[in-house]
Structure formats: C-alpha cells, structure tokens
C-alpha cells in the first residue's frame, strides 16, 4: 500500500516539474509580446504625447499586468526617487529586479538593457529609431521563443510523466 502511495507521489512530482517547465516555455513568448505592446505604448507617449518619462512609466505600470507592469512600476520609483542617477541605471535596476519573476531569458534581457542606454537621453527622432530597433529585436526573440514552445512544450509535459513512470518501474 505504502509502495503504491510512494509511486504515485513520484509520478506526481515529476509530472509537476514537467508541466512547470512547459509553462515557462509557453509564458516566454507571451511575455515578450506584452513587452513589445508596452514599448509601443511608450513610443506613442514619447513621440506624440511628449510626456515626461516618469509619468509615461507610471501610466504604463497602471495599464500592464504582472510582471511587465512591475517593471515599469519600479522604473517610475527609481526615476523619481534616486537623486538624478542616470536613466540607464534606473532602468537596469528595474529590469534586474523584475527578471527573476518573468519567464524571459537572457537574450531579451540583453536587448532591454541595451535599450535603456538610449532611453530618454536623446531627441524624439532618435528615441523613435531606438524603439523601432528594440521592438524588432524583441520580435526576433519572440519568434524564436515561439519555435521553442512548439518544440519543447509538449515534450516537457510528456517527458515529466514518462520519467516518473520510468522511475516507478525501476524501483518496483
């Protein structure tokens, strides 16, 4: 009886691991897409609204859900509160803090942090060019993430269950 219970537990835990990994594969493209939408919003506010960066970030933070919203929320706080340290540092700090909570990976992070280097500190034309660049870079990452999703999502799920089954059989 106890043996059976143990087997069920093993199967359950490996399946959970499998599903979780699968979910992160599914979340990544979705979050990148959200990020791109939020950048479009940023673009509209900067180029056409010509609003201050801290106000824009606050506005986006209120509109976007977790974890993208939190990124902007943090950025707003740092822009307002950190005694004039550079925009890049504020942005990087926000990205660094939010990253563990997201399903996104290193390439997107590079792109975003690189974008921070130019955020706010040049004229509108330049901002527009930078936003276009970061969006297209993110698009590339999104496509790749989507490809990985189709390739690995299902596999992870079945691998979880099968691995559990294998362990159970071996132990039995």
């Amino acid at each position: 009886m106890i043996k059976l219970l143990g087997a069920a537990l093993i199967l359950l835990s490996t399946s959970i691991i499998g599903f979780r990994t699968a979910k992160s594969f599914a979340d990544r493209p979705r979050q990148i897409r959200r990020l791109r939408t939020s950048l479009s919003l940023l673009e509209t506010e900067i180029i056409y609204g010509s609003r201050r960066l801290d106000q824009v970030c606050e506005h986006i933070a209120r509109r976007e859900k977790k974890p993208i919203g939190i990124l902007y929320q943090r950025c707003t706080e740092y822009l307002k509160g950190l005694d004039g340290v550079s925009t890049y540092e504020c942005w990087k700090k926000a990205v660094d803090e939010v990253w563990p909570e997201t399903a996104m990976k290193a390439p997107e992070r590079e792109v975003l942090i690189d974008f921070g280097k130019t955020l706010g500190i040049s004229n509108r034309e330049d901002q527009l060019a930078n936003l276009a660049r970061v969006k297209s870079n993110l698009q590339v990452e999104e496509n790749q993430a989507r490809e990985e999703q189709t390739r690995y999502e299902k596999m992870c799920k079945s691998l979880g269950i099968l691995a559990g089954a294998l362990i159970v059989i071996l132990i039995y």
Binding site: I46, S50, R51, R52, L53, D54, L79, D83, G84, V85, S86, T87, C90, L119, G120, I121, S122, N123, R124, D126, Q127
Partner: peptide, 17 residues
Amino acid sequence: CAKMLNLVSNHSLYALE
C-alpha cells in the same frame, strides 16, 4: 552636472527639444 540635467529634464530630454 549629469545628475542635474537628469533632474531638470526629468529623464526626458526628448520632451525638451
């Protein structure tokens, strides 16, 4: 000076063209 410019412009030089 860099900090001061950030504070004066509110990190938004594009709005101050």
